[in-house]
């Protein structure tokens, strides 16, 4: 009886899972594998082989990877500095880094659009200095910049968390046994933060791979990511079947990339993201 009561407690979550996870995925799968008439087809999955789609998914992978690498290179030393702070306002400094996350991200990207525009503040400065207006917007590099700006906190936080979990006496023990700073970084700090790095990579790479708003606003329609293609199929082309088919393919890419990361994640720190 008690057992049954306890199981009933899971009820609301089952409803949630069924209604908001299983059902939508089912609907997408249905659209992906049917034609407009409802007949079964592989055509929409196979549509990924279309040169336009190949090009955009390759670009998505390239930009997503670049964004992840840049985030990692910026976040790791930053997390290290943050976690080595030994003053009372440590949590406040961390809070400053997370604060932008709480602002609407469309707003943040839009403001970059204004800053980087030909008539924007940076170009105004460059013209003053005699470098003439430089085309800053609508390039792949700008899109990566926007992604890094948006997703950096998601890389910092898990790495910072895993670093603060390393106790001081572990570092002192390593030093005591003769390790210099580089050895401590390579043999102690890095191995103990691998799980944080993996969480960070997944949390940055997945949204970067599927993003379409950033490329829309900072790429000005010139940078066509797979996310943009899917969006267009739904919003403009109204070919829901093709859009669903490409979504399914993108999902397979995401799952594959997470499976690859999982190989490196020995102690399951990234499991929280799954």
């Amino acid at each position: 009886m008690r057992r049954l009561m306890r199981q009933l407690l899971a009820g609301p979550y089952l409803v949630w899972i069924a209604g908001f996870i299983i059902l939508p995925v089912g609907v997408i799968l249905y659209y992906a594998f049917t034609t407009a008439d409802g007949a079964f087809t592989f055509a929409h999955i196979a549509a990924i082989a279309d040169p336009v789609h190949v090009k955009s998914i390759l670009l998505s992978l390239k930009l997503g990877l670049s964004c992840t690498v840049v985030c990692l290179l910026l976040a790791y030393p930053l997390a290290m500095i943050l976690s080595s702070f030994r003053f009372r306002h440590q949590s406040f400094v961390v809070f400053l880094f997370i604060l932008p996350m709480w602002m609407n991200f469309m707003l943040r990207i839009l403001s970059w659009r204004l800053i980087l525009a030909n008539s924007g503040i940076i170009n105004a400065l460059l013209v003053r200095l005699g470098f003439g207006p430089v085309k800053l917007l609508n390039t792949p590099a700008t899109v990566v910049f926007g992604m890094v700006y948006d997703f950096l906190p998601f890389m910092i936080l898990p790495i910072y968390n895993s670093m603060t979990r390393i106790k001081d006496d572990i570092i002192e023990a390593a030093r005591d046994l003769g390790a210099g700073n580089l050895t401590i970084l390579a043999k102690i700090i890095f191995p103990l933060t691998v799980s944080g790095i993996i969480s960070g990579i997944i949390m940055v790479f997945v949204p970067a791979l599927t993003s379409f708003v950033i490329s829309d606003l900072l790429g000005g329609g010139k940078v066509l990511l797979i996310g943009n293609v899917i969006e267009q199929e739904f919003m403009q082309g109204t070919n829901w079947n093709l859009g669903s088919g490409l979504s399914v393919v993108l999902m397979i890419f995401v799952i594959a990339s997470m499976a690859v990361m999982n190989i490196f994640d020995k102690d399951g720190g990234g499991a929280a993201v799954w």
């Binding site: 106790k167 006496d169 572990i170 023990a173 390593a174 046994l177």
Partner: peptide
Amino acid sequence: NERNLNTVFQKYALF
């Protein structure tokens, strides 16, 4: 790391 002595820590501090 340049001293010829070693420490045993209170909470072991094993890696």
